[in-house]
Simulated assay, not measured.
Amino acid sequence: MNNAGFRATNLSSTFRLVLYGKRGTGKSFHASCIANAVIERGFSCLVTDIKQVVNLMESSFEKRSGNLERILAPDLLILEDLGAQRSTEYVMEHVYDVIDGRYKAGKPMVITTNFDFRERILNATADDPWGRVFDRIVEVGFPVKYDGNSRRREIGMKNRKDFKRKLGIEGIES
């Protein structure tokens, strides 16, 4: 079996995940694990965020369609931190172009976001600048909620406690 046949039959176009939840709960970590597994199996993967997409699209107006094609070309696209960027009409246009382009091409994607899927994404109103983007995400995305405390905060607290112990200042507030 050639590599192209392997790709066509084993990386499902229905693989569209929306990993959502609070900061530090493991969304990006798990998205990276998915990227590693996909790459290990011989597929291509691009992990990026909308800010990088917009920067690439702004870099050359003449090359805009080619740049969009480069973003859409990998077998799997992982969009990190959707919603962390400014919600301008210009940014929303690029977000929609990427998500809609993947949808039309029948290619899988993983989206990470701090937006709550049920409260923010499903209930977007017509005047919401994210409404059009969310409408497409709801159609093609399978939501996976990440709950709990921020692992970064827990690790930070442990590191500070260990550092205080090493310095011999355990009882001192910081």
Rank of each mutant, 00 (worst) to 15 (best):
T9H: 08
Q52E: 12
K166F: 15
N149H: 07
D135H: 01
N159H: 06
G24C: 02
A126V: 15
Q52K: 11
T125M: 00
T113E: 14
G131E: 06
G141L: 02
I121P: 12
F6T: 04
K51Y: 04
G66I: 06
S32F: 02
N36I: 10
R41Y: 01
D97C: 04
D135C: 03
G5P: 01
G106K: 03
N123Q: 13
R64K: 13
R64D: 00
I172A: 08
I155L: 12
Q52T: 08
T25G: 08
G141A: 07
K63W: 08
V47F: 04
F142L: 07
G21N: 05
I78M: 04
K161L: 07
A8M: 13
V144W: 12
S150V: 08
M109Y: 09
V138I: 12
S28W: 07
F163T: 15
K107G: 08
M57S: 15
R23S: 13
S87Q: 14
I155D: 05
R102T: 08
S59N: 15
I50P: 02
G26N: 09
Q85V: 08
Y96N: 09
K104A: 11
I34Q: 01
S13K: 12
M157W: 06
A126Y: 11
S28F: 05
D162N: 12
W130K: 12
L11R: 03
L76T: 00
R151E: 10
N55K: 13
L56P: 02
N10W: 12
A126R: 14
L11P: 04
G131Q: 06
G26T: 13
A84L: 08
G21W: 02
Y90K: 04
K158A: 15
M57P: 06
S87Y: 10
E58F: 09
E58S: 13
G83W: 00
F115Y: 09
A73Y: 05
F134E: 01
G5L: 14
I71F: 03
K27Q: 04
R86K: 14
N2I: 07
G26S: 11
V38S: 03
I169D: 11
V133D: 07
T14D: 14
D100T: 05
N3T: 10
Q85M: 11
V38N: 04
D81T: 09
A84H: 07
E119K: 15
D49G: 14
K104N: 08
R7E: 01
S12P: 11
L82V: 09
G141Q: 05
K104V: 09
V144H: 12
A124Y: 02
M157R: 11
S28M: 06
G131P: 04
F61S: 12
G66E: 14
R160T: 13
Q52A: 10
T9P: 03
R102V: 00
S150D: 01
